[in-house]
């Protein structure tokens, strides 16, 4: 009887110690995860503090931004004579919804639409400088961000992303 009691006590103790060790292991994992999330939170807090310095504006839908961007290019074509052919950054198929081409940006909940502007038929630098000025103005008036401007076969290729929510 006494030995049975002792054996049962040992059994219970073994189960408890085993459970305790499992808990201990889980605690270690949780502490590790907590440390990781704490450092992430610290970075996020810093990011929040940094971003608080920016001016807040009412966000624009990407569709409205795109419409505005297209209208602006048309305006530059009308006033400056710069012919700008807008194409999607990737090879889009006909009749395809442009929503399929939205990409993530460096801003949370803000989408990006990769676009390419082709400006053809340049003969000298003066024209080029004017076109570059138009690109600069277009970029500043819209939510379009230029990532690359290059020349290719006497044409100017402007690559970038249009931002919106």
């Amino acid at each position: 009887m006494n030995k049975i009691m002792l054996v049962i006590a040992f059994g219970i103790a073994v189960i408890l110690v085993n459970s305790g060790l499992t808990l201990s292991s889980r605690t270690m994992d949780i502490k590790k995860q907590k440390n990781e999330i704490m450092s992430e939170n610290s970075a996020l807090s810093g990011e929040v503090d940094q971003k608080q310095r920016f001016k807040k504006n009412v966000p624009k839908s990407i569709s409205n931004a795109f419409t505005f961007f297209v209208n602006e290019t048309k305006m530059f074509e009308t006033y400056s004579g710069t012919q700008m052919d807008i194409a999607f950054g990737v090879q889009a198929k006909e009749n395809e919804n442009i929503e399929d081409y939205y990409v993530a940006t460096g801003f949370r909940n803000v989408k990006g639409l990769p676009l390419t502007i082709n400006v053809e038929k340049f003969s000298n630098e003066t024209d080029m400088a004017e076109v570059l000025n138009d690109i600069y103005l277009l970029e500043n008036r819209t939510d379009f961000k230029v990532s690359e401007i290059s020349t290719e076969n006497n044409a100017l290729i402007v690559k970038g992303e249009l931002y919106g929510i």
């Binding site: 971003k51 608080q52 504006n57 966000p59 801003f107 949370r108 803000v110 939510d143 961000k145």
Partner: peptide, 15 residues
């Protein structure tokens, strides 16, 4: 908070 902030500040950041 960052999701909200990003939506409101991306235009200024781009500018």
């Amino acid at each position: 908070a960052l999701n909200t902030i990003d939506q409101y500040i991306y235009q200024d950041s781009l500018r």
